[in-house]
Design a protein around this nucleic acid. Structure first.
Lengths: 152, 152
DNA sequence: TTAAAAATTGGCAGAAACTGCCAGTCAGGT
DNA sequence: ACCTGACTGGCAGTTTCTGCCAATTTTTAA
């Protein structure tokens, strides 16, 4: 991966549906080698895929919640159990394993506060083995981008 | 926005570069009306744009950090100052305004721990007016998707 | 420094996809 | 039943994609 690949990556993050011709222009290549580089990045798994960015509020899910979870036990079985459950919950868009006092942080999307209560009861507590849940609601977005910073 | 639009949205979140013909197939429309719906969703701002999903590690930024920040004062001026600074920092991919004890939560991408130290010193503390910073490192991803849940 | 080998590039042409236009269809209201 | 408005599907000209090959650039080794 050279600097041209990185240029391509950042251009595709800014606009994932740019045509190959425009992309080629932007990175100063002709369409053929440009497309080949894109395909190589895809095959190598560096570009995982493409996605539409959607206004969550307009879609009907205006409430973003960050949920910080601690497990009671950390043996292989309970951890596996928790993680495989989480992966199947559609409302959970992200789940990170964390260092420090908390084990996991989730980003969850719900239609309203009641929806969140339902979510915790029906989806989280039913997993079992959870020591604590700490909830923070996000009520505004200052910044949200997919474009990775330039490497210095 | 009807259920067909929602179908289109979810299909485009799963694959943002699907061709219009395949998309039309998937949602049982012919290409013309399908494309028109997509364009309308774009014009209405419901589809904000399209983006490539990139492997952050392969790109060279393997460390994800969540930073929870409290401000000293919450008057209009200091808040504006903080938020406009944050928007200009490339390493900050997300910044949410939070309820509760913390004012903001940031998602930050850095190459390593040293990079994070530099980031805090050079980018965050220089803003001024910050009461506290709480850092959590993410060292694994259990789930990460852009696809919004179906509305029940 | 030179020469051979490898990787990358650019152009071309057939195939695929996009997109504006128009007539036909369907749903809701009077 | 009729009218209105919104939506649909098909068509055709235009644009874009993409596999192939020769030419160029870069790398490697002598």
């Amino acid at each position: 991966m050279d600097s041209k690949d990185r240029q391509i990556i950042r251009a595709l993050q800014r606009n994932g549906r740019i045509t190959n011709q425009e992309l080629a222009d932007e990175v100063s290549l002709s369409p053929s080698p440009c497309l080949r580089r894109v395909r190589n990045l895809e095959k190598a798994g560096i570009i995982r895929g493409y996605s539409a960015e959607v206004d969550e509020k307009a879609y009907g899910l205006p409430v973003t919640v960050f949920v910080r979870i601690k497990l009671e036990r950390h043996n292989e079985e309970d951890v596996q159990r928790f993680e495989s459950h989480i992966q199947r919950i559609d409302e959970v868009l992200e789940c990170h394993v964390m260092t420090g006092a908390i084990d996991y942080q989730l980003r969850v999307l719900v239609p309203d506060l009641e929806g969140y209560e339902d979510f915790v009861r029906a989806r989280i507590h039913t997993i079992g083995g959870i020591a604590s849940i700490d909830t923070s609601f996000a009520y505004g977005v200052v910044k949200k981008t997919n474009v990775l910073p330039k490497l210095s």
